[in-house]
Design a protein around this nucleic acid. Structure first.
Lengths: 200, 200
DNA sequence: TAGACGACCGACCGATCGGTCGTATAGTTT
DNA sequence: AAACTATACGACCGATCGGTCGGTCGTCTA
C-alpha cells in the first residue's frame, strides 16, 4: 500500500498549482503510482481527501513554524521568533506550504463546507496565537502598555502574509527582507528593552 | 446583443466565487441570458474572455481607487488617500473587485500564460504607484529623509491587502479599522507635520 | 489449508467541460 | 419584394471530471 503520507504530500503539492478543488484525482493517482480507484479505497470521496490534505498541511505548519517559535524565550522574543519562523517557512519554498494555504483559502472563502470551516478554524487559531503572544509580552513588560493585541496581531500577520504574494511577482528575497524589517522596527519601537531584539 | 460590459461584470462576479479558470461558460451564458455559443461570437476562446474580464476589473480598480486618490493634494495626504480609497473599495463589498483580484492572483501565480502576465503587470504598476507616491512625499519634505520607498510601500500594501483575508474569516469592519490605524500610525511617525494627517 | 479480508486494478458510468457547426431570424440593402 | 449580412441559437463533439463496480492478488487467521 502506497503510504497515505506520500499521497497527501503529493495532493498538497498539486493543489498549490491547480487548486484544491481543481485537483484532479486522475492526475493525483498517476503521480503517486496508484490507480484512481485505489484512492477511493482510502478516502470515501474527494472532500475527505481534501480535508485530510488540509490537515496534513496544517500539521506541517504547526511542526515547522509554531513548534520552533514556542521554544524561544517567552515575551517579545517569542513573538519575533514566530514571525521569523514563518518567513523561513515561506523562504524554503521547496515545500508548497505557503502558497498552498494562500491559494486554498482564496479558493474556498466564498464556498461553505467542511473544507472552508477547517481552514477558517486553523486561521483563527493562528490569529489567536499571535494575539496571545502579544498579550503575554505586554504582561511581561516587554511591550509598552496600551498596545492593542488585536491591532498589533493584525499588523504582524499582514506583514508576514504578503510575502507570499510578492515572492511570485517580484523579488521574493527582497519581500522577506521587507517583512522582517517592518515587524522588527515595529516591535523595537514598542519594546522598552532594546537588547531583547536583534539590531537588524 | 447583450452588452459586453454586462457579460464581463457577470464574469468577474462569478469568478470571484468559482475562480477565473473554474468559471463555467455555460453558467456565465445562462446568467447573462445568452447562449453559450453566443459568447464565442464575442470572444475567440475562454482565455480571451478571461483577459477581458481581468481588464475590466483593473479598470474598475483604476477608476474607483487610483483616480480619486490622485485628486488629493500631493504628498503624504495623497499617499494616505490612496490607502483609504482602497479600503473603501474593499469595504463596499458589493462589487467583487477585491476578492476577485485576491482569488485570481492566487489561482494563476503558478501557471504561466497571458492572464498571469496581465495580472502581474497590473500588480507591479500598483506597487510602483505606491512607491512613487512615497518618494514624492519624501521629496516634498512631508516624510522623513531616509525612508526607503520600497520598504514603506511593502508595508502599506501588505496592511491594506490583508483586509481581504480577514474580512471573510473574522469581523470585516474590524479589519478595516486595523488596516487604517496601522498605516495612519506609521505615516504619522514618519511625517514631520502632524497637521497633514487626520487624528485617528 | 480453507477462507475471510483489505489493497488495488481496469473498465466503465453519467455529468459537465470548452468549443464547433449548421441553421433560423432580424435588419439592411438593392 | 428579393438578396444579403450579422447575430445568435440549439444540437452536438471529444475530452475529462468524480465516482462505481466486478474482480484479482497477497496476507493473516482459524
Amino acid at each position: 500500500m502506497r503510504s497515505r503520507e506520500t499521497i497527501l504530500r503529493q495532493a498538497v503539492e498539486l493543489s498549490s498549482v491547480e487548486g484544491l478543488d481543481g485537483l484532479s484525482l486522475g492526475r493525483l493517482a498517476t503521480a503517486t503510482g496508484v490507480s484512481k480507484s485505489g484512492l477511493f479505497a482510502h478516502w470515501r470521496d474527494k472532500e475527505q481527501l481534501q480535508l485530510d490534505a488540509v490537515e496534513w498541511a496544517v500539521r506541517q505548519w504547526t511542526e515547522q513554524v509554531v513548534g520552533p517559535a514556542l521554544r524561544a524565550p517567552a515575551g517579545v522574543r517569542r513573538l519575533f521568533a514566530l514571525h521569523e519562523a514563518r518567513l523561513a517557512f515561506y523562504g524554503d519554498g521547496v515545500l508548497p506550504g505557503g502558497c498552498f494555504f494562500f491559494a486554498v483559502q482564496a479558493e474556498f472563502d466564498d464556498r461553505p463546507g467542511a473544507v472552508r470551516d477547517r481552514l477558517s478554524r486553523s486561521m483563527r487559531e493562528w490569529q489567536g496565537l499571535i494575539r496571545r503572544l502579544v498579550a503575554e509580552a505586554v504582561t511581561l513588560g516587554e511591550l509598552a502598555d496600551g498596545v492593542d493585541p488585536a491591532q498589533l496581531a493584525y499588523e504582524i500577520d499582514a506583514l508576514g502574509e504578503m510575502v507570499i504574494v510578492h515572492s511570485r511577482l517580484h523579488d521574493g528575497a527582497q519581500a522577506l527582507v521587507h517583512a522582517r524589517r517592518a515587524v522588527l522596527a515595529r516591535l523595537r519601537a514598542l519594546c522598552p528593552d532594546p537588547a531583547l531584539l536583534p539590531e537588524d
